[in-house]
Every structure is written in C-alpha cells, then in structure tokens.
Write a protein that binds this DNA or RNA. Structure first.
Lengths: 364, 364
DNA sequence: TCCACTTAAGCAACGCTGTTGCCAAAGTGC
DNA sequence: GCACTTTGGCAACAGCGTTGCTTAAGTGGA
C-alpha cells in the first residue's frame, strides 16, 4: 500500500493539493490546461483550483498562456507551468565517468557536463569532483537539490553506500550527507537503474503507470515502477534481476550461482547470438510481467542499443506467447527512449518527485 | 509510488488522521496506547490527538482503559479500540465450499459458517447462497461491508470476474455489484491469494512491511504485500507465481509452458520427494526476494501444511544461500499462521482496510 | 444592433481542521 | 505539606476548501 504513516495538518493538505495541480500542469506541457479541467481531474472545486493556481502564479511557478475556443460562453484560460522557475541537478557517477545535468521544473535538459572519473579514488576526492560539477552547472539559478545515481548496492533512505562492486573502500560511506554538507543543498541518492526507470516514468512518451526497465550493459539489472512510483524494496535492493535463475543447473555465473539470466544473456551476446540473448532476457521479462502485472517492459543499456530491434522482437515474442497462454492481454515491449545523459536526468528527477507529489507517501 | 491522485479537503484530512489513530489503536491491541504516544507516532500535536480520540470515544469506537504508571507526574491514560463497535463479513468462495466469517474491528473471528458450494452452478444461485450466509452471520450487528475472495482471474477494481479456471460461464459476471445490490452492503472482491496475504499482513505475529505469501495447494500462487499494501498490479493479475520459468526446456506444464515452478513442485510432491519440491519452491522464492527486496517469505496451502518443516527448511536453504552470495542479509522464511478460515478472514479485511487508512491511496 | 443565454472565474462569508497559549487535574518526592 | 512534573482539556486562532453570489467574456438568435 502506498500510504502515509504520519498525520496531516493544513499546510500538509495545502502542499498535497498544490503538488497535484503542479503535476497536472507538468503533464500538460506546452499545451497547457484550464482551471476547470484541473478541477475535474483533481476532484477539487473550481474555486479551490482558482486559489491554488493563484498562489502558484504569485510564486512564479505557473502562468496564464492564452485561451481555448469558446464553447458558447466565456472561453477557458489556459495555464502552463513556468519551467524556469526552479531547477534540479542530476549526477551520474559511473565507474569511469561523471555525467552532470541541469534540468528545469519540466524535466527538460538545460545544461550538461561530462568529465572522466575514477570511482576507485578516495571518497573525499569523488565528492569534491561531484560538487564542482554541480556548482559549475548551477550558475546562479534557483536549484532545489541534487540527485545522485550510481551503481549499487546502496541505501536510498540513509544515503549510505554499501559494497560498491569492485570498490570496497566505499562501503559505509555516507555520500548523501557528505555531498549535502559540501554543497549546502538537499541531496538524494539512488541506484543507477532506479534513476533510469524514474526518468522513463516521467517522460511524456512513456505512458505506463507500471513498468520494468531492464538494463543490459556490463551486467543486467532492473528498475521497477509500480503504480507510478519507484519500487525500491525494504533496503533499496529491489531490481536484482540479473541473477534470477531461469535454468536450474545451467552454466555457472560470476555470482556463484548457475543458470542466471545475466550469465546466459551475456554468453549469448559474446557468441554473437543476439536472438538467443533476447530469448533468455524474454524469459526473465515474462516471469516478471506475470508476477507483477505491469503495463510495459522497456529495454536499455549498451548491449541492447547495439541491436535494439533484435532484442525488442525477441523479448516481445516470449512475453507475448506467455501472456496469450495465460489468457492475459499482451503488453508492449519497447526500447527505452533517452539520450546519453538519461541516467543523470533521472537522478535529477529524484529531486523533483516530491515537488509534484509523486513521493511514496502522499503527505510529506 | 503509493500516492493519491485526487485532491483533499477538510473531511478527507479528518478521515486520514482518524484512520491513522485507529490503526495505531488496533496495533496496540489489548495493551492499549496513550494519547501522547499516539501524538508521537502520528506527528500530530497532543491537542489534535485529544480531539480525534474524543470523537472516536463519542462514536463508541475507542474507550479509556486504565492508566500507566506515573513517571513523576500525572499518569498517562490508556486508550483502546472497542472491537465490537463494528464488524465485517468475509466470504471465501472455493470450488466446492463456501466459508463465511464475521470479524470485529480488531479482525478477531466472531462467527463462522461453512457450507458446500458448487461454483459451477448458475451465478445467480451462487450469489444467493453467498448472500444467505452473510445474512445468517450478521444478526443485527453493525456491518461495514462484505469482502469476497475467490480463485482468479478477476478484476478487483471493477469487481468483475474473468474466466475462472474451469468455470467459463462466470466470465464477465459483475459479482461485486450483484452481491452489493442483493445485500444492500458495500462489497469488495479480490483473489483468494490476495485475501490470504492481506490477512497475514494484519496479523500481529507477522511483523513485516513487505512479504510474499506463497500458496501451494492444487496449484501454486502468490500474494504480494509491498510497503504494507497489497500489490495487485494493473489488472489484479499480480502474483502469477506458479508459471514462472525456472528450468528452460524442463518438463511440460499444464499451462502449455515448460519448466514452470508449479509443474516441478507438484511432480516432486506426487513422487513423495518433498525436499525436492521445497528446493524448487525455494528457487522461485529466491528469485522473488531478489527482485522485490522483501522482508519475509510465508508459505501456506494444503501441500505445505502436510509437511511444513521440510518446506520451510528447504525454501529457507535456497533463499539464504542466494542472499549470502549477493552479500544481502538473509530474510526469514516461515509457515503462514492461520486457521481453517484464514482466506475468509483476509476477505473481511478488505472491508476494514479503508477504515484504518491502509488503502492504496492515502486519501479516499 | 441588441439582448438573452452560457460559461468562466473571482470575492466574501463560512464551517471546520489542526495549532497555540493557557490552566486545571493528578500524580511524585523531598 | 509543598514544589515540581506530566497529562490533557478549554478557548482563541490561522488557514484550508466550500458555498453562494457577482462580474467578466464570450455565442447566437431576433
């Protein structure tokens, strides 16, 4: 259940409704949305919407932008988000590269920087490098916070890293708090696959409330969006997809197990048999779709990008066959959209999520 | 993200806070809880808690029950839920049996009836039989609604059945609305595995925010509780666990696939090799634990009950080994508690969930 | 051109929420 | 017996969305 455990008072109620309206304004994009439509969609009275949008306009977060055609009376006024009213920074710390982006309230990329990074260096030096990139992008703008995405495992709630694969000295380092203190900004930390999935969840072209993002690069991982929200699990460990067993007693995997999807996929890719890799991935995807009843499967990662069509076709074939067998409707399998900074952009969305009321709790 | 899509006003805020307090009162059980502790746990001010509990006492839902020892000042007054203030009915429609229970606000079993049922009969007759059982249990008490659990597939949101396996004439029947009209009560419909999981989620001895309930009977299914709420998926299809592939190219399953957990498990059970069945179940459980990062795995169903210890031990061994391999803490694997009416009791909880604010949306 | 009608949106008064400031009640312990 | 601590209710209050009404801004027929 996606629920709040804390009591609510008038300011909380006000934030809740304002976030709801802002989320609709964001979804409306350039087209805008009228006050009455906001009222219908939120269930609030038109008068309440007028008050809320009035406050947003006073803040500078929303603005009037034209009118619709009349339907026999006074035409509706169109309201739009003012994306430049605030910004967020997203950082993607990868093994050998640091990607930093600045996005506006609408999530649009405003600036980006990429520099080499040695994740094996001392934590303090990495923090300093990350902070420098963030500051270089800020440029006097109103920045709400900084989102950081990196390879797991880590703990989203406490902002502490665990044993980052290959870099044992990161274990237990409180990256979120260290960066927050250095920058004087709110900082949010999450796994790279989660950030990527969040970024996809908020793209206008991904209209799915629930989906799985499967990332096949040097490893295989997943980001899960369930009911519009990231599912992180109890210890930010959710999305461990690569080491699902699909072939008992199968070939050995680096993890110590046998018949893991990752091992089967990567071996097939290494052999050049992309169709076989896609089928293995499809079996895991079909398991996942059946278990969670999601709306879509999105594929990404370097290995997928190298032969998108074969992967999409192969995964789709397995998922579709399994759905038909179970009498369920088939769900779409697509390649994930997104450019070279998609993970960093998703990280920036970690900052924007609470602004638009899409946090795991309805009341902050 | 577990979030509300609708606007909130003062009555909604009041309901939200009252439900929060009621939930804490329920969790406190016979021991009770003081006003100040309620204030700490909810984040509300003591005065707000006094007002809310005052209203609950006026309604008859809560009552004062003794005091704690003094800590140097006026001793705290203990408040308790009055379980008999309202009741809920739960119905479990199984293939050959109808189990009906009456539970109080605390979820305690107050009455139960079991009669034979032919799920293959005409829907109208089944509705009538269900309604008669519900009425026989009511007995002039204040009943908040009726929860119905039955084998899927079905749609929880619309309350309509799909092609119930083996009973094609149920397809498309609006069971929820038919029963609601016949009884003049609110009715909630869900899958049997979901009801069982919900019942477990609300038992005092299951202290897990997120867990999977794996049910091995004539088939194999799962109920998922994530972050304290049932995860039903987009079409109430979540929990399709039996037909997860764990052995590519394995033995054929009745579903048309190969190497499904269900087929492997049931074949082992039929051979009398319970340890092997447990290992197969364990592989599926380990996949699930890794994917969702849950806190516990609970096992139930007739086949499990026949040799609980072997199943728990076998599943635990696989789950534990996988967790250690991934560097994650091991999570408990246990047999699900619950008596002969546990599914019907969980169905009754479908009615109580909104009362205690544990619905999927924070604001109803 | 005018006027009746429709639709949009703000103003003002209102009921009700949790909060704040204060005080009475009910204990402990020197 | 008195000072102190802690609980918990009373009363006044700020602020939320709602309600009732008015004004603004269009359409379309006479």
């Amino acid at each position: 259940m996606n629920r709040s455990n804390t009591g609510a008072n008038l300011p909380a109620l006000r934030n809740h409704n304002a976030a709801l309206v802002l989320d609709l304004l964001r979804a409306a994009g350039e087209e805008g949305i009228s006050r009455l439509e906001l009222a219908e969609r939120t269930g609030l009275t038109p008068q309440a919407v007028s008050k809320i949008t009035g406050r947003l306009r006073d803040e500078g977060t929303a603005t009037e932008a034209g009118r619709r055609a009349s339907t026999g009376g006074k035409p509706r006024t169109v309201l739009k988000l003012v994306p430049s009213a605030a910004h967020a920074i997203g950082l993607h710390l990868d093994r050998d590269e640091l990607s930093a982006v600045l996005v506006d309230l609408a999530g649009t990329l405003v600036g980006a920087r990429t520099v080499p990074l040695d994740l094996g260096a001392e934590p303090a030096r990495v923090v300093e490098a990350a902070a420098a990139e963030a500051e270089a992008l800020t440029g006097g703008r109103r920045v709400l916070g900084v989102g950081v995405a990196m390879p797991g495992p880590l703990d989203h709630d406490s902002g502490v890293l665990h044993r980052v694969t290959g870099f044992p000295h990161w274990s237990g380092f409180p990256l979120r708090d260290a960066l927050a203190e250095r920058l004087g900004q709110k900082v949010f930390l999450d796994k790279d696959t989660n950030a990527a999935a969040l970024g996809l969840a908020l793209r206008a072209d991904t209209r799915a409330e629930s989906f799985a993002y499967l990332h096949l690069g040097s490893g295989l991982g997943a980001g899960l969006v369930l009911g519009g929200a990231l599912h992180r699990g109890a210890r930010t460990g959710a999305g461990e997809f690569g080491h699902q067993t699909i072939l008992l007693g199968g070939p050995a995997c680096g993890c110590g197990g046998r018949g893991c999807i990752e091992a089967l996929c990567l071996a097939s890719v290494a052999r050049g048999d992309i169709a076989a890799a896609a089928r293995f991935l499809g079996v895991g995807a079909a398991n996942l779709v059946g278990l969670l009843d999601i709306d879509a499967v999105l594929l990404g990662g370097r290995k997928v990008a190298a032969d998108e069509e074969t992967f999409v076709r192969g995964v789709n074939a397995v998922v579709e066959e399994r759905a038909l067998r179970g009498g369920a409707p088939a769900i779409p399998v697509r390649a994930a959209a997104g450019g070279p900074h998609s993970v960093a952009e998703g990280a920036a969305q970690l900052v924007l999520v609470p602004v638009f009321g899409r946090a795991n709790v309805a009341y902050p």
